[in-house]
Design a protein around this nucleic acid. Structure first.
Length: 854
RNA sequence: GCCGACGUGGCGGAACUGGCAUACGCGCUCGACUCAAAAUCGAGUGGCCGUGAGGUCAUGCGGGUUCAACUCCCGCCGUCGGCACCA
């Protein structure tokens, strides 16, 4: 090949190629899914829709482009792939930007969406844009309202007054939106306080047990554990204590407690109520009223002041009242302390200081009695009365009950059931289950969200907005007086309305819904985004749900991913959908951190803008680089070091495909076959390598192991380059290897492969790029030729006492005795044996030989 | 504190059910091409000892099981994520 001829080969210039193909694919409608097509198996692939913050950053690329490779891979497998995208577009940032920049949240959001659409397209992703969903659009949020009304009818939505977490800036928060030991707001970081408010809830607890059941879905173990812990099911008993008659009050009130250790009931030496407990004022002795009142007031403020440490000293006050223990009629004092939570169990506990660390600390501080009622196997009868130095918290099967009246001596395990049975006989308690999970508080005092469709009428109370008046639209012009105040509240044109029942004057609810409502069912809406009659088209849903593969970050473990499961179950019970689980398979990609190892955020200034990388290297290089970085579920700090290696790889693919005969200057070896190989052997080696690569790469795509997939494609391209310029280059085997390489690379690097596919077709004199069928992305995934991939010889490592001493080439399928004979004759092995006689020879299925000597 | 993930060259990482530790890539060193540089191509690249063949140590640390351990078991240390007194 002359130098002149080589120069005529076009250079690989991604920025020239990529926009052209993106446009061509859109024109051909290559990725518009026909949901009615039943001739192929369906594959619903979902990636978490982005929040409309304005910019697509490298983290979005890390989440979306490997997911796109999954979509392309499944299409090549012959499946009908549905891969939609949309925008999570309600929420605080839009509102904050509006306040700051004096721009309407809608305008801010829609501008951002325009920019993000452009950026998403530049990735070369195959989203079906026809099914796009934008949650701040009335055509979407009217169905939030409609579903809410169905929940209301079914008793799954209700209004209640209770102490809620309140952020001074952002208003009420769901419990999972309060973070850290100091209880700060997940959005603004301000300290959260408790407020007693009337708010709307969804009855998530109704599904607590079903949500614990993960059978039939393939989710990562850590997420299942997190959800399980979050739901926090515990089995125990509810025990009814009765207040004792006293000078200041008649007694006889029931004080219910939940305990997981009914076997310790004889060890209850006092009781504790939460400061918010309804019986607090009734049970407080007049002499103690001032002290108790002060404590309760302080506790209300508690959460907003220092609460950094769980090691914090226990605090509390005595009410002056006593309760009767149902099993031994013992009279024990009732205290109030903030370590007992109002929202869990009954808001009151029986304190067993001998066997609970918290109760122990409290008893020590206030000098309350501590009585051992459970003894471990090492405790002798004599030691039972000895003072404890710490709470004995144990579930040892050898534990036995002591100081427990008729139950003394019984194994503690049996005590659980026998005490519950005793209580049940006397109607003073029963077996009970408690959950840590609470109902979902959805009211938000914000403008930029879905208005809750109810009306308050003085005559008729809470009146749902009739379906035919939906959507309740957000007013267009609003006055942003300032932060923390919902502008809907002061907008009389919105608030003032008439009662749908009596026609009298009435007020609209001004709270809007938590934005997690939007993402709790959006994948259903993708299937029929324009349907004006129903939120979900049940016929399409029946065919396409559940989502086959969902990808997104693990940070949504106990919020979005739990809410989505709840919604699906609730909607199924309402007959709106068929499936009870939303996402069959879930994969959590890791998180890309800033170069400083911290979470990427605008405030830290460590956000990586992919646009300049794309303009320098091209989208294909950025896609491959992100896949090559490491296992997809791992993420890690961002560093562009090494992206040049990916760029070089794609240049080599380009060269191998278009210029098989070139010889690199300065390389004395190039153009020469490896020693001992003729061109037939070289061609055989090429085919074998290509088909073996195909075998592993197919698995790696299916298992989402993109980093090793890229590595294996690099190995194949390195091999091709080794044979470039030799007699084998340009042979049938070479061409086959090149085409296989392009097909295997196509899902990951769609533009360069499409370009080379088209050029090679043209070189063969075929039409290319004219229709959807000729695209590389419409080709079937190739089949492995097992005969070509098979190897005739194998290199077997040989060890002596587990240490590598030699390697031998032997025919595949060699008999063990023959292999042993060959091995023992090897000079290196003879030397290593030093005359010793082998005790044993391990063959390890022909993969390795280990000669064991003493 | 409880729950979970992870710890391998200078760096990102590979080794799937115990079987050649360090694939692939980055970086670095040397060489070719060049007046020179960039780009590209080639060779080398875990530590230590040795001119060499080779030996020896090494997958966070300490033990153990095994012919054989990055992989399994026990006990520590460290990093990251989740939970936050849930009775």
């Amino acid at each position: 090949m002359s130098a002149v001829e080589r120069i005529r080969i076009d250079r690989y210039e991604p920025t020239a190629i990529e926009p052209r193909w993106q446009q061509r694919w859109a024109e051909l409608g290559l990725y518009d899914t026909d949901l009615a097509d039943t001739t192929r198996p369906k594959f619903y692939l979902l990636t978490m829709y982005p929040y409309t913050s304005g910019n697509i950053h490298i983290g979005h690329w890390y989440a979306k482009t490997p997911t796109d490779a999954i979509a392309r891979f499944h299409r090549m497998q012959g499946e009908n792939v549905f891969f939609p995208i949309g925008f999570d577009s309600f929420g605080l940032p839009a509102e904050n930007a509006a306040i700051k920049n004096k721009i309407h949240p809608r305008e801010w959001t829609l501008n951002n969406i325009d920019n993000m659409r452009r950026q998403l397209r530049s990735m070369g992703t195959t989203f079906d844009w026809n099914s796009e969903v934008v949650t701040c659009d009335p055509t979407y949020y009217r169905w939030n309202q409609w579903i809410f009304l169905r929940f209301l009818e079914a008793g799954l939505a209700y209004r209640a007054s209770s102490p809620v977490d309140w952020c001074p800036n952002d208003g009420t928060l769901a419990r999972e939106q309060v973070e850290g030991a100091d209880r700060h707001c997940w959005r603004c970081g301000a300290r959260v306080e408790k407020r007693e408010l009337d708010q709307w809830y969804l009855r998530t607890t109704k599904y607590a047990d079903e949500l614990l059941d993960f059978s039939g879905i393939e989710w990562p173990e850590p997420i299942r554990i997190m959800q399980t812990n979050w739901i926090g099911r515990s089995e125990g008993a509810e025990v009814v204590f009765t207040t004792a008659r006293d000078a200041h009050q008649p007694g006889g009130d029931e004080l219910r407690v939940f305990t997981t250790r009914p076997d310790t009931l004889y060890g209850a030496t006092f009781m504790v109520m939460s400061p918010e407990h309804p019986l607090v004022s009734k049970l407080t002795h007049p002499d103690r009223a001032a002290e108790v009142e002060a404590y309760v007031t302080a506790a209300g403020r508690e959460t907003e002041i220092e609460r950094m440490s769980t090691e914090r000293e226990k605090t509390g006050v005595f009410t002056g009242s006593y309760a009767i223990n149902p099993v031994n009629e013992e009279r024990i004092p009732i205290w109030i302390a903030d370590y007992v939570l109002a929202g869990y169990g009954t808001g009151a506990i029986m304190a067993v200081p001998a066997h609970d660390e918290r109760d122990f600390a409290f008893a020590q501080k206030f000098g309350l009695p501590i009585r051992r009622v459970i003894a471990g196997p090492e405790i002798s009868y004599k030691d039972v009365a000895a003072p404890l130095e710490a709470a004995y918290v144990s579930h040892d099967s050898k534990d036995r009950m002591v100081n427990s009246g008729p139950h003394s001596g019984q194994p503690a395990r049996d005590g659980f059931t026998s005490i519950v049975a005793t209580l049940e006989n006397q109607s003073r308690g029963k077996a009970a289950v408690n959950y840590r999970l609470r109902d979902w508080l959805i009211s938000r005092q914000r403008y930029w969200g879905t208005p809750i469709p109810v009306i308050y009428c003085d005559a008729d109370g809470i009146v749902p907005v009739p379906d035919d008046q939906l959507p309740v639209q957000l007013p267009e012009t609003v006055d942003y007086a300032g932060r923390g105040e919902n502008p809907l509240k002061t907008d009389t044109s919105f608030v003032d309305t008439t009662c749908p029942k009596c026609g009298g004057p009435a007020r609209r609810e001004t709270d809007t819904m938590d934005t997690f409502i939007d993402s709790s069912w959006y994948w259903f809406r993708y299937l029929s985004p324009a349907d004006a009659d129903a939120p979900v088209d049940r016929r399409i849903e029946a065919r396409w749900c559940p989502v086959d593969q969902y990808t997104g970050g693990a940070e949504h473990a106990v919020m979005h991913l739990l809410y989505a499961r709840f919604f699906t179950k609730a909607m199924a019970d309402l007959g709106l959908v068929h499936e009870r689980e939303p996402f069959k398979r879930l994969f959590n990609q890791g998180q890309i951190l800033g170069a400083d190892g911290e979470r990427m955020s605008k405030s830290r200034g460590n956000v990586e803008d992919p646009d300049k990388l794309v303009s320098r290297y091209g989208a294909d290089t950025v896609r491959l680089f992100l896949m090559f970085m490491g296992p997809w579920d791992q993420g890690g700090p961002w560093s562009p070091t090494g992206i040049g290696g990916i760029s070089r790889f794609l240049h080599r693919v380009w060269t191998a495909a278009l210029d098989p005969h070139g010889i690199e200057a300065g390389d004395p070896e190039s153009g020469v076959l490896p020693a001992g190989q003729d061109s037939a052997a070289a061609e055989k080696a090429l085919r074998a390598a290509a088909h073996r690569t195909l075998r592993v790469v197919s698995d790696e795509y299916a298992e989402l192991r993109f980093n090793t997939m890229v590595a294996h494609l690099m190995e194949l391209s390195n091999l091709l380059m080794r044979y470039r310029g030799t007699e084998a280059a340009g042979s049938a085997a070479w061409n086959e290897a090149v085409l296989l390489l392009l097909l295997m690379l196509a899902p990951a690097a769609p533009h360069i492969t499409e370009e080379l596919w088209a050029r090679l077709a043209e070189a063969r004199g075929e039409e290319s790029g004219a229709d959807a069928k000729s695209s590389i992305h419409s080709q079937p995934w190739p089949a492995v030729d097992d005969a070509a991939a098979a190897e005739s010889e194998r290199e077997v490592p040989v060890q002596v006492n587990g240490k590598l001493r030699d390697k031998v080439m032997v025919p595949v399928g060699i008999a063990e005795s023959e292999l042993e004979r060959v091995v023992l004759a090897r000079p290196k092995i003879v030397a290593a044996l030093e005359g010793r006689v082998p005790l044993k020879v391990i063959h390890a299925g022909g993969k390795l030989v280990n000669v064991v000597v003493r």
